[in-house]
Amino acid sequence: MTYLPNALDAELPPAQPKPTSLTGQRESTLELWTSGGAEAGIWECEAGRFTAVRDGFHEICQILSGTATLTGEDGQVVELGPGSTVVLPDGWRGTWDVHTPMRKTYVTVQTGGTSSK
């Protein structure tokens, strides 16, 4: 069992440049658990814009803090804030516009394709 009393206050590793950032922001990830193609953790990102591709895995996110607009290549637009839950299925592509620094918990589950977080 992995237990974290408060994901909002958990200390994350030093932030690193986000590879898909269009605005130069940084991100940090604390992996809490991994097993058999699944992973759970906490992710944090500075305000800015980045692209995302979910090939080879599904991602389920619970937003803890911050706000963002998520725009899929299909044109669907979703506003995210504390308490929001979003599922990004295998094959999802789009853009995150992070308005205020964001922290989320996430679970990814591999589907057998090529994974590129």
Rank of each mutant, 00 (worst) to 15 (best):
I42Q: 02
S65Y: 03
I60N: 09
R103M: 08
E27M: 00
E79A: 10
S21V: 00
H58Q: 13
A47Y: 12
V78L: 13
G36I: 08
I63V: 15
S28L: 12
S35K: 14
D90C: 14
M1G: 13
G24Q: 06
D9T: 15
F57G: 03
L64T: 06
E79K: 04
T69Q: 10
I60P: 01
P101D: 15
G113P: 07
D97V: 00
A38K: 07
I60A: 12
Y106N: 00
T108S: 10
T69C: 10
H99G: 02
Q25M: 09
L8W: 04
W92C: 03
G113R: 01
W96S: 05
P89I: 09
E59S: 04
G72H: 14
A15G: 06
G66K: 04
A47N: 02
L32T: 10
L12P: 04
G66L: 01
Q76A: 08
G37E: 09
G36W: 09
A10E: 15
L8N: 11
S115T: 06
T34H: 14
E73A: 02
G75H: 07
D9N: 12
E59K: 01
W96N: 06
Y106K: 05
T51N: 12
K18Y: 05
P19M: 02
T34K: 15
E46T: 04
M102W: 08
L32I: 15
T114L: 04
S35F: 13
G24E: 03
E79D: 06
C61A: 15
T111C: 08
R49E: 00
P17T: 01
V98A: 05
L30F: 14
P13F: 14
T85A: 07
G81D: 07
A68L: 10
L22D: 09
R49S: 03
K18P: 01
I63F: 05
P14G: 09
V87C: 11
L70Q: 06
P89D: 14
M1E: 12
R93D: 05
T2R: 08
G81F: 09
G37W: 11
G48C: 04
L12Q: 05
P101T: 13
T85N: 05
M1F: 12
W92S: 06
V77M: 12
T29R: 01
E79T: 04
I63W: 06
V87Y: 12
P5C: 11
M1D: 12
